[in-house]
């Protein structure tokens, strides 16, 4: 039920997957929108604060997720899929994880370049790493932006693949990430 089996996802994996999906899409939409806010918008300060707080929490969740991934049993790829599908899905997942981590780390490098930590919803402060290289805020900022576009591109392919398997191939690729078999 909680754990994965060799053919099915358990509740823990499913929960982390969908929370992360919601967070990634929300962070992208919020980030894309907030950078063009005018100074007197009531969101001008609030939106970046929420963006940073959710980002830090997602970094924690992703760290747990990767540890869980190595520790727990992962279901085998669908036997009905082609070998090239297994391979491309594996690489897409790896690149998604790498991009997520890189985006979150670069976001931290933008905000903490001056030695200020990041407040997570006034609950606690994530410590600053300081300025590790010249022009850190600008370089990390450009990287953060383009890596986020790349991630959303991959998310789109990932979702399109899941929908293709569900509606065209009519297999359980999508449903096994949606419901838990007893």
């Amino acid at each position: 039920m909680l754990n994965n089996s060799s053919t099915e996802y358990g509740l823990i994996t499913i929960f982390i997957h969908w929370i992360s999906a919601l967070a990634v899409l929300s962070l992208f939409a919020l980030g894309f929108w907030m950078v063009d806010l005018t100074y007197y918008s009531s969101w001008y300060k609030t939106a970046p604060d929420i963006h940073k707080s959710v980002g830090i929490l997602l970094l924690f969740l992703t760290t747990i997720r990767l540890l869980w991934r190595f520790w727990a049993t992962m279901p085998a790829p669908m036997p009905t899929h082609q070998q090239w599908e297994h391979q491309s899905a594996r690489w897409a997942h790896r690149i998604i994880y790498v991009l997520m981590l890189a985006i979150m780390v670069s976001g931290i490098l933008i905000s903490t370049a001056d030695g200020r930590g990041i407040w997570v919803f006034d609950w606690f402060q994530f410590p600053a790493v300081g300025e590790l290289f010249d022009d850190q805020a600008d370089i990390a900022g450009a990287f953060h932006q383009y890596a986020a576009y790349s991630l959303i591109g991959l998310v789109f392919i990932h979702a399109a693949g899941a929908l293709k398997h569900h509606f065209i191939d009519k297999d359980s690729t999508l449903t096994r990430m949606l419901r838990v078999k007893r």
Binding site: P48, I110, S111, T112, A113, D114, R116, E131, Q136, A137, D138, G141
Partner: peptide
């Protein structure tokens, strides 16, 4: 201006 995020915005 003693604030990395603001300086990035200023640039």
């Amino acid at each position: 201006s003693n604030h990395a995020e603001r300086d990035k915005h200023l640039r």
